[in-house]
């Protein structure tokens, strides 16, 4: 049985820490990659776009398996000793979220590019400045993209279960506990955690939506 008070807070904190970190790191890479793909033309760009779009739907268990192989003792990065740690879970979720953020960012920046390209060029902006400007101009949409990424991270169970191992007080997160408790027949706890997970997601989305509406009213 779960010692609710202490463990629950711990589990929620681990969940948030892992998924927020993974999402922020994925945003750093995804925004940049997406914007580069939208602005620059280079050989292999088309193939990369197709790959990225396909990877948006990567099954979490497969990503978990790949990261597991990578980090296991015999794997190429086994010496780092990262398997069954929060870092391993962050890596797995980062791999899941980055293609999603990059592909959506590419779409958003490409649309902005149609609208802004001539004007920015006329003002004397070089491509690197254009990239920064367009990412900032798309900030409201990109916030939504980040939330979609966070949603994918916090809700997945397959990858964190495999690479984290669902170890008590260590790598246990809400989704792995829900899966475990359900299989043990503790439906009350599973259900309670499920509701907390949904409430958390709603709160974060609401906060983002309000800041977006407020900012949009100010700057259009």
């Amino acid at each position: 049985m779960l010692d609710l008070d202490e463990s629950l807070v711990e589990i929620i904190l681990v969940s948030l820490r892992v998924s927020v970190t993974a999402t922020v790191l994925a945003a750093v890479v995804g925004f940049l990659l997406g914007a580069v793909l939208a602005i620059w033309r280079f050989p292999g760009r088309g193939a990369l776009l197709v790959l990225l779009n396909a990877m948006m739907g990567l099954p979490p268990v497969v990503v978990g398996l790949l990261v597991y192989l990578l980090l296991s003792r015999a794997g190429p990065m086994g010496s780092l000793g990262l398997l069954f740690t929060e870092s391993a879970m962050i890596i797995a979720q980062w791999l899941l979220v980055t293609p999603l953020i990059a592909a959506l960012t590419q779409q958003i920046v490409a649309d902005l590019m149609l609208e802004y390209r001539e004007q920015l060029y006329s003002l004397g902006a070089k491509r690197w400045t254009m990239l920064q400007t367009l990412l900032w101009e798309g900030r409201y949409s990109l916030l939504t993209v980040m939330l979609a990424g966070f949603g994918r991270a916090i809700s997945e169970v397959g990858a964190v279960l495999i690479v984290g191992g669902n170890i008590a007080h260590h790598t246990r997160v809400m989704t792995t506990v829900i899966a475990l408790e359900t299989s043990k027949g503790n439906l009350t706890i599973a259900l309670a955690l499920g509701m907390i997970l949904i409430a958390l997601a709603c709160m974060i989305n609401a906060a983002a939506a309000f800041s977006k509406i407020y900012a949009a009213r100010l700057y259009g």
């Binding site: 400045t129 400007t133 101009e137 700057y219």
Partner: peptide
């Protein structure tokens, strides 16, 4: 400089829009 039929302005304040081009 060019002024377009439909000017594209940045999602920033009026001042920041002018400041942007001067910084460039």
């Amino acid at each position: 400089a060019m002024v377009f039929q439909r000017p594209v302005l940045l999602r920033r304040s009026v001042v920041a829009n002018i400041d942007y081009v001067l910084r460039l």
